[in-house]
């Protein structure tokens, strides 16, 4: 196990902003007539953790889905890990190899066992030998604290376990960046903590992360920067302490009062 540990990505925490891992410049997107993203500018440095929040329909999911091209932007530039996202399939593939993503609905492959879920992409995309892929997979299952579930099918696991498998599945590709799209929103309250614990650990190891979430406790603990979006725009951005203590915009204040009310 120890040599597998040495091969981990982002071993040492790097000072934030050392090099831009994600750069979005004046990004616009429309769904037909509807302007979903309006002039988005965002720079995420290596090892930086950005937490994106905002009311539903504000475009936060759409924004992070643009980073690995699950959504196409129509104007502006997006540069991920030094590669510009264009319609060039080579670039898209290269970026997707470096960017892991965790979905609200887990999206595990129900016809494969947990272990097969974890080794599928390393075998077919990274072209690893099966044995090596399985070793890595078991290492990450250990990390997300469910090594005993390796041979079960996703349908046999609880929601929290499934989401941890999904995180491990992304990590098996050894990505440089992890995107989280409301990872705890579909979970029962008692399972949220087990998923957040895994995410906090990951953050403390220096992974570059962009999380769309309303877990403000998590944001305070690990966030380097808060981004507040509303109606397709980035309304405010600030370090968590400042963001929660004295939000500048009226809209931010209103939103925070609503979600922190109880």
């Amino acid at each position: 196990m120890s040599n597998a540990a040495e091969a981990m990505p982002g071993k040492a925490p790097v000072q934030s902003g050392a090099r831009a891992m994600i750069e979005m410049q004046a990004v616009h997107k429309w769904y037909g007539e509807f302007h979903v993203l309006k002039d988005i500018n965002l720079i995420v440095g290596r090892g930086e953790k950005v937490v994106v929040c905002g009311p539903s329909g504000s475009g936060k999911s759409t924004m992070i889905r643009c980073i690995n091209r699950l959504e196409e932007h129509q104007q502006g530039r997006i540069i991920v890990s030094g590669i510009e996202l264009t319609s060039d399939l080579k670039h898209i593939e290269a970026i997707r190899r470096e960017v892991g993503m965790v979905f609200q609905q887990f999206n595990l492959f129900p016809h494969l066992t947990v272990l097969e879920n974890l080794t599928l992409a390393p075998i077919w995309v990274r072209k690893l030998p099966k044995k090596e892929a399985e070793e890595t997979a078991r290492y990450y299952l250990e990390r997300v604290r469910i090594p005993e579930q390796a041979d079960k099918y996703p349908g046999q696991l609880s929601g929290g376990q499934q989401q941890r498998v999904a995180i491990a599945r992304s990590l098996c590709m050894k990505p440089e960046i992890m995107l989280f799209d409301e990872p705890t929103s579909a979970l029962d309250p008692e399972m949220i903590k087990e998923v957040l614990d895994v995410m906090i650990e990951l953050a403390q190891e220096g992974m570059t992360m962009v999380c769309v979430t309303h877990e403000m406790g998590f944001a305070r603990t690990v966030g380097d920067m808060m981004v507040f979006m509303d109606r397709g725009e980035i309304v405010e951005r600030a370090p968590p302490a400042e963001f929660f203590a004295n939000p500048k915009s009226e809209r931010t204040r209103l939103f925070l009062s609503q979600i922190l009310a109880h």
Binding site: R69, M101, A121, A166, M173
Partner: peptide
């Protein structure tokens, strides 16, 4: 969502169809 997860992992369209 299955296709999206496969895309996010970097599987190509053919692999996505065949494996997922």
């Amino acid at each position: 969502g299955q296709s999206e997860a496969a895309m996010a992992l970097g599987l190509r369209p053919g692999q996505r169809m065949r494996l997922v």
